[in-house]
């Protein structure tokens, strides 16, 4: 994980199994996975490691935002890793984990905006180090 990863968490009143399904079953995904109230989404997926998904988000002005990616890791009901490509970013990686809590399940989404597919591990490290050094420079 690096400075270029966005991490969000939320405690949701549902079981890990229910949440895992909500992230992976196209029918349920289409009920919540769109960014604005006036948008809708079409979801299609081949749910296995190496399989792909497509999210087509329809805005009320007719714009369509397409997101595609590939499932990298599937561990029901604990963890899900997939790549995330949009008009804006390519080869980014999203990891979703589900942790059991007393009052529900904590969902953690971490979105690594490094273009992983295009770089070797060394490049990734180098790049992360580079940005953190730049951060130091800017702060000083």
């Amino acid at each position: 994980m690096s400075d270029n990863t966005v991490v969000v968490k939320k405690l949701i009143n549902a079981s890990r199994e229910e949440l895992f399904e909500a992230f992976t079953n196209p029918e349920i995904m289409s009920k919540w996975f769109y960014p604005e109230d006036d948008m809708s989404v079409d979801v299609a997926n081949e749910f296995h490691v190496g399989g792909t998904y497509t999210l087509k988000m329809y805005a009320s002005n007719g714009d369509i935002y397409t997101h595609v990616g590939e499932y990298k890791e599937i561990i029901p009901p604990e963890k899900l890793v997939f790549t995330w490509n949009s008009d804006f970013v390519q080869n980014t990686v999203v990891t979703v984990t589900f942790s059991e809590m007393e009052s529900g399940t904590e969902v953690t989404i971490s979105h690594d905006l490094l273009p992983a597919g295009e770089m070797t591990e060394n490049h990734r490290k180098g790049w992360g180090g580079c940005l953190s050094r730049l951060g130091t420079v800017v702060a000083s």
């Binding site: 966005v6 939320k10 949701i12 349920i28 919540w32 960014p35 979105h111």
Partner: peptide, 18 residues
């Protein structure tokens, strides 16, 4: 912006279960 995007998604998911 991405943080806001994913936070809104999780809020929507929460509402779905509510």
């Amino acid at each position: 912006q991405y943080r806001a995007f994913w936070e809104r998604r999780l809020d929507a998911l929460d509402e779905y279960f509510e």
